[in-house]
């Protein structure tokens, strides 16, 4: 399928999201799904990013604002906890940082090439003025 040219493509095409049959998609988490090569989940838009979000779980209060307002399904929340960022699908828009309510923020934007561990070590302190 992936090697089919555009003119070999049948009219009225159907793309299958999964390999095989999933009976209850709404009850199956992403890691348990058998994605087909046609699902955009297997693709990456990581090269769109100029800045990347870095997550500091020390300050996170699991409010899930970032989860609900992420346009790219890149905030991974499991068991009501925010556990990380899906860097294959994050486009670096920065909405998660804007909606983060903690002080200091538990998500911040850094240049794409920044070292995550160095940034975490130099995390800004609490801003008293707020």
């Amino acid at each position: 399928m992936a090697n089919t040219g555009w003119d070999e493509f049948e009219i009225g095409a159907m793309l299958r999201s999964f390999d095989g049959k999933i009976d209850d998609i709404a009850g199956t988490l992403q890691e348990d799904r058998a994605y087909s090569p046609n699902n955009s989940f297997v693709a990456s838009v990581a090269d769109w990013r100029i800045e990347k979000p870095v997550f500091n779980k020390d300050y996170c209060i699991d409010c899930q604002f970032c989860w609900i307002y992420c346009p790219d399904i890149s905030i991974i929340a499991r068991d009501k906890k925010m556990i990380g960022i899906d860097m294959d699908h994050c486009k670096g828009c920065g909405i998660c940082v804007e909606v983060c309510p903690t002080n200091p923020k538990s998500l911040l934007m850094f240049p794409e090439q920044a070292e995550e561990e160095a940034e975490l070590a130099n995390w800004p302190a609490k801003d008293e003025e707020k």
Partner: peptide, 17 residues
Amino acid sequence: FSTSADRFEGANLLCPG
């Protein structure tokens, strides 16, 4: 709400934001 399993996938080509 955050325990929902999304049925809309990332790496779509909508603009950032």
